[in-house]
Design a protein around this nucleic acid. Structure first.
Lengths: 182, 182, 182, 182
DNA sequence: AATGAATGAGCATTCATTCAT
DNA sequence: AATGAATGAATGCTCATTCAT
């Protein structure tokens, strides 16, 4: 799995073959077919492992410091950039026989809904200004796209000043969400 | 080219083969090899055509109504969603033999720099609050990611309420950029 | 197709791979995939070509000499032994994903029904003794099995005395079918 | 062995893999490789076990009721249809590296010679009309093919009326062999 | 005695590309 | 200008077998 993630992160989803992964893992190609029933299964495993890691990192962190969700997200990404990037690659490229994206809606549930929930909670507590249901979703999407974009930027520019970047994102979304600004 | 775009839009970059494109175009597969030296060349052409279309649409529009850049961008996308989506797919998947993304930095120049320039101009004119150079780039990236995310969302949900979505994005970035909010 | 037939005849259905056929045909393996959509399609073609050849050989012969159907059948087989054997191999080995024989019932229609029809006609004309419907089928099956067995024997022993063998079969089935014997 | 037989009977020789057998037997695949030196050895065992069962069933039966050999054969088959079918599949598909059928002549010795012997005996005793050596073999082959065909038909149509079918076969071969008919 | 792990060989198939026409 | 034919390379995958435990 680790090598799968690294391979995807390095050469991209489309170029990731069992052979590539095997070469990186220094094992025979068939070992992978032996452990997984499908190539699809390997790719499916990548988001699943990510969700687990995400869950076990995020939940306690968010409870500890309720006010800084963005910081928590971005810290996790910075520390797991390859895995997160592999997930993004997989999510946005894995398609069924009919050409439809297979994992997109599942990914929404795990990465979009939580953001929407945080926004909703913030509104209830009066910390965020009122969104209507539609604009809350747009806000959540925008935040997720910013986070994913952060991941991609991090992969392209490994020496990115993470703190600086994070601060930038926080300022942007604070301004957009804080109630005193409207 | 048209068929390439439609194929990418429908089945994604990774599943787009010369055969797929040829079948859609109702021509022989080799005709494509005949017109283009490479598969890479076809895909490279997609962003190029897009930039041209973008240029000839955007420039006059921006000059006509200086204050509503976001609206101009999103209108263009809504009307060229397949092409824009194909560009995003191509940009984020086309890689060289070394695994590096081939078109990403070129794409930045055409899609990121213009946004940065608009922001810089806004600051000069006092319409936007001061960004430092770093946060201006973060802002530009975030805006572009939001725009690209809009495209993707548009492809996944063809009946998306475009006006509503657009208004949501405008509000978000107005709040983040307008000087009176900090 | 010719090489497919020869390969099946020589190494059997189970050992016949595209590579084997290609080697025999002295062409690249992919040429076959290029001409046929499927491996299944090649195998499907073998009985089809056989039925055509059978039809164009049998029909005129049977009309010319109505009384000697067995002779007509066995002559055809002796002259097309490889093809007939390949058909038998294919018929009795080609199976679907569920494990069911795919071509057996289709083969019955082309090879069993005609025999049943000849028997029925013989009964009508008083040349053959009365079979009930069930025993007519058993008779037809037995004749077909004898004919197929002739093919297999012919492949195993290329120098088989065909005339002698044919005469033997004719005697057996004459005795079983002629009305004066019951 | 039992599972091998069932697997062959169900999916055919060509589709029978060690994995398939192991799955049916609920054991690890390598257990088979552990007990048998070869895949070939397993398949070779199937006819051997069959011959044993055949021997211990047929010999006493034939001695008890000398006149009804066909009935004895067909009864045995009806009661061991899966095994007999597996033998037929194995005999007609198992091939050596040179492509030659490995078990065919061995099978002839056990299944063809006995029939020839019965015919010869019948002739001696004046019960059957005179065959020359060649036609006796043809007769024996035809009977065996009829018997094998009965097995195959039994597998394809599990609700076959066995008695009816048996009676049909007996009539056919009685007419062909009884001396009073020529 | 039994088995999980591993592997080389072979399979059908897809693909971008070359070539001759 | 256009195309059918052909092909090497690579892909995901199955399989019988070996090995270490």
């Amino acid at each position: 799995m680790e090598c799968s993630i690294e391979t995807i992160a390095e050469v991209g989803y489309a170029q990731t073959s069992l052979g590539q992964i095997a070469k990186r893992a220094n094992i025979s190609k068939v070992v992978i077919s032996y452990r997984f029933t499908n190539k699809k299964e390997i790719f499916a495993q990548i988001p699943i492992e990510y969700y687990k890691a995400w869950q076990s990192f995020i939940t306690p962190q968010l409870e500890a410091q309720k006010r800084n969700a963005s910081g928590v997200f971005l810290t996790f990404i910075a520390e797991n950039r390859k895995h997160v990037f592999a997930v993004i690659e997989t999510i946005s490229n894995q398609r069924g026989a009919d050409g439809k994206l297979l994992l997109a809606s599942e990914h929404d549930e795990t990465s979009l809904l939580p953001i929407e929930n945080i926004l909703t909670l913030g509104i209830k507590e009066g910390l965020l200004h009122e969104f209507n249901r539609s604009s809350a979703r747009v806000m959540a999407l925008t935040i997720r796209n910013a986070i994913d974009g952060f991941t991609i930027e991090l992969m392209r520019q490994p020496h990115l000043d993470i703190k600086e970047f994070t601060r930038g994102l926080v300022i942007i979304f604070d301004a957009s969400t804080k109630s005193n600004c409207h």
